[in-house]
Design a binder for these strands. Structure first.
Length: 281
DNA sequence: AGCATTGTTTCACA
DNA sequence: TTGTGAAACAATGC
């Protein structure tokens, strides 16, 4: 689920609820999600400190501790991760993106009837930060492809897709021989665009995912930059990339909501890709 | 049973 | 050396 819009919602959740609370305990026993750290490493580094700022580039976020004096906590949601904050104050119980979940529901066992399909399944809590006041910040991830790591290396990331200036975007995206979709999903070129946001943006921009990135005109690059910003902002506002206009039509037998043509499917940049062959050229 | 999955890393190859 | 694409990763869901 998580692309830039979901991660931004998670970052905002941390910023709104988890800052300023001294850390009492950390559960880092899942050494796959917390790798390369061993059990207790994140705990030793974080207990006694306080989260002071939540930041994000693309799909990667990190939380500074003790005004930058302590280590930073890197968090990545992977393919299916979500951040949840719970506290005694039930009204604050919420998840990262338009899918509020009460503390009662999150209690799972305590509720008596935990839904195994729920992302709040207690068994899917892969990393937990408990605060002295009883609140907790939890990374739920049914597939364990998310990450919690100290002092994350973000040097391989390009500029954030929402922050990158138009001219920089044009220079970085409008180069190379790879298909356009692969180019905008390359996190070292620009950071934050995933499979669904890429399909949505290219559909809205009327550009084929197969176009060699380096062959775009100046006008097309500028148009793509504006369209990507609009799609990303809309996804943040509406609760995630799945709210995109084109997303429901990424399936066999559908009809493009603008022209009625059946979308086509192919693998582009290693990912399943759907587009309108009539309008996207 | 088999295939697909909103992400990232590693590896093979041109 | 650089760029590109496939496979692997974990664990479901259909």
């Amino acid at each position: 689920m998580p692309e830039l819009p979901e991660v931004e919602a998670a970052r905002a959740l941390i910023e709104a609820h988890a800052l300023g609370r001294p850390i009492a305990a950390v559960d880092d026993r899942d050494t796959y999600v917390c790798r390369p750290h061993g059990v207790g490493e994140l705990s030793d580094a974080l207990v006694g400190r306080t989260l002071t700022r939540a930041r994000r580039i693309g799909k990667s976020m990190w939380v500074e501790t003790d005004e930058g004096e302590g280590p930073s906590l890197g968090l990545h949601l992977g393919m299916a991760g979500r951040m949840v904050f719970i506290s005694e104050d039930v009204s604050a119980g919420t998840s990262y993106a338009g899918d509020p979940m009460s503390a009662t529901e999150l209690a799972g066992e305590a509720g008596g009837h935990p839904d195994p399909r729920s992302s709040g399944n207690p068994a899917w809590a892969r990393f937990t930060v408990e605060f002295e006041d009883g609140a907790a910040l939890i990374l739920f991830d049914k597939r364990r492809l998310g990450r919690a790591v100290l002092n994350p290396d973000l040097s391989g990331l390009g500029p954030d897709a929402l922050e990158v200036p138009r001219a920089v975007f044009a220079e970085r995206v409008g180069a190379g021989t790879a298909p356009l979709k692969a180019r905008i999903m390359d996190q070292s070129v620009i950071a934050g665009v995933g499979n669904l946001l890429a399909d949505e943006t290219l559909w809205q921009a009327g550009l084929s995912p197969l176009r060699p990135a380096g062959e775009l005109t100046d006008e097309e690059r500028a148009h793509l930059w504006r369209t990507l910003r609009r799609c990303t902002r809309a996804a943040i506002k509406h609760g995630g990339v799945h709210t995109g206009r084109f997303i429901p039509y990424r399936r066999r037998g559908a009809a493009c909501p603008r022209c009625g043509t059946e979308p086509v499917r192919a693998t582009v940049g290693g990912r399943t890709t759907w587009w309108c062959p009539e309008e996207q050229t």
